[in-house]
Design a protein around this nucleic acid. Structure first.
Lengths: 338, 338
DNA sequence: ATTAGCACTCTTTTAAGTCGAGTGCCAATT
DNA sequence: AATTGGCACTCGACTTAAAAGAGTGCTAAT
């Protein structure tokens, strides 16, 4: 891969910056006047022509200015990431709002995602999941009728999982309460991995006759807890309607589909939570299809038994710098609360 | 109000039906040929002209066919509601899907709303709230750190409420467990109204010194439980993009805004849950602004300590007949499970 | 009361023409 | 050898004009 000259780099970054700001193809004249005062438009044109050959720029049609390719965005984002980031100003007021209406975590995250969307005009994402070794606070069973039982698991960070399971026999609520009591004496304060082992061995010793019945129930709980499923929230989808990039119904549909299909969204969140800090994926770099014309900025962090992710999904020409600053500031702000 | 002649009624209903089916203004020729074979287009034209004066029809422009006004839709829907409804065929397979992946209630409702949207191309809504007098299964406290405590309330139907509250002192988890134990002995199986009274009198007698501190906590819980807040789910928003009625960004924004603002959606659900059964609101009849060009069909029902609502939000020319049948069938199907 | 006929209206579609932004290239300049 | 000014050329965006089509309103006949 041929390296870029200093000036070529400048031109690429200028085109990206200009396009992010104005939303229209950048012409040689504009770039020369606003970003590289020392050069004439003709010079820029030559550079641009070369850069197009190299795959950094392209023209939507012959007589238009240049647009950045994903490669150019990548260059731009990498450049930004190296710079020192300043915190995003002016969301402190909103964070106070969140703090004031003391709510459960889900509401807070839902609100945070809405806020992210509102402020940026992109789609805000917030997600949280328990860490693998988080301790269980309490397990509770609630007879819903017949053989269906609702299992409620409260984890130590405050996350709550619930799920109905089917027992092979109609067990009374009193009996369930007893079971719950026994389990909680060993479970409370310990991670599921340990708890499961203890329950298993207990079952084998004491309750062999109903072992198989319970085993399925335990497997169910295993599924709930080991899936480490993210609780996902998105907000602000309505604001992207105003963006010129989403006037196309096709793109709109793609992004709405993504938001409504938790699985795909989970893949994105999953990917980014593998390491702490900011992560930017551009266009095709995204692991899910359909949003290849979008970019995703996320920031992840783990504390107190939980992994939290905040993110923004926007057009490829989204304001990466501002988005990153906003996400970092907000994540930090939220952590001060929890 | 002048009454409609038999034939006028027929014409109005025909125009509504035709428009619902085809999505285009209905001309006199079409109506005469497809719905009133006995009459010539000219006759229909005369009737239409009268009906326009009466406020049932209108023309988008001089040389176009007629469209139904909200009044006409109302007439049509009232006519439908009197008819005997047949169950919606072909969703049994999907209901089985729901049944198979035995999940917690929230997932089921989320899935149901998605399904409603997918099948109809409108927006599906599902909501559930506890009845006022539903019994409490369990109240649990979890120390999150410092003075913040997470209260988890499991209600007898399986609904779970949680919320962080601020206590005036840093209370240890052991202490919280004790409190929880005491409360549960009196709370479990009883509705909150009673429980609150008992706790109050207990506090007054035993714990006067910290009465005020706890009082606030109890008030908080009061707020959680007496708000009877609906848990809301919507799904299928992406499908409306394909409808000709929502090609307009303005309308799209209005409906997305509604979906993202729980409050407004709650108003709609609230209204319809006041009586059992089907309810159709057309255009301006809707209690919230912004969706005056949409209709909402809902069906509500209460059992086992819970009120459930299923609904569809679609264009005014939505297929009311099919929508109603679908909602009724699905609600019935869901109740067989829970 | 109903209907056939016809002129009229208004949107939609198609075609043609103009405008302007921006490029590519060449020859002149540094 | 790199840079620059000049100029012809391209292609989309916008404007205008004309034609087509669907449907009505009205009038006169049945």
């Amino acid at each position: 891969m041929t390296l870029l000259t200093e000036r070529q780099l400048e031109v690429v970054l200028a085109v990206v910056y200009e396009y992010i700001e104005c939303g229209e193809p950048a012409g040689s004249r504009t770039i020369a006047k606003k970003y590289l005062r020392g050069c004439s438009p003709a010079t820029i044109r030559n550079e641009m022509s070369d850069l197009e050959e190299m795959g950094y720029l392209y023209q939507p049609h012959t007589s238009a200015g240049r647009l950045p390719t994903p490669m150019a965005y990548r260059l731009y984002v990498d450049a930004i990431m190296q710079r020192r980031r300043t915190p995003h100003p002016g969301i402190n007021g909103w964070l106070d709002d969140i703090r004031d209406q003391r709510r459960d975590m889900e509401s807070v995250l839902a609100y945070a995602s809405q806020l992210l969307g509102k402020v940026t005009s992109y789609v805000g994402v917030a997600a949280i999941a328990p860490l693998e070794d988080v301790a269980i606070h309490r397990i509770d069973f609630l007879r819903l009728g017949g053989e269906t039982v609702l299992v409620v698991i409260v984890l130590n960070g405050g996350l709550i999982h619930s799920r109905t399971i089917l027992l092979p026999a109609d067990i009374s609520q009193d009996m369930l309460d007893n079971i719950s009591r026994s389990i909680n004496t060993i479970a409370s304060g310990n991670p599921w991995g340990q708890v499961r082992e203890v329950i298993y061995s207990y079952l084998v010793q004491e309750l062999e006759q109903i072992f198989h019945s319970c085993r399925e129930a335990i497997d169910q709980m295993d599924l709930i807890l080991s899936s480490r499923k993210y609780r996902l929230f998105t907000g602000g989808a309505r604001y992207i309607l105003a963006l010129p990039d989403f006037q196309d119904m096709g793109k709109l549909k793609a992004i709405l589909s993504l938001l409504e299909e938790e699985q795909n969204l989970a893949v994105i969140v999953e990917k980014c939570s593998q390491k702490e800090g900011v992560r930017v994926t551009i266009g095709d770099e995204n692991p899910v299809p359909g949003i290849s014309s979008c970019s995703v900025v996320t920031v992840a962090s783990s504390t107190r038994g939980q992994r939290a992710v905040l993110g923004l999904i926007g057009p490829m020409r989204m304001d990466y710098e501002r988005s990153i600053a906003l996400l970092e500031t907000m994540l930090k702000g939220l952590y001060e609360d929890f």
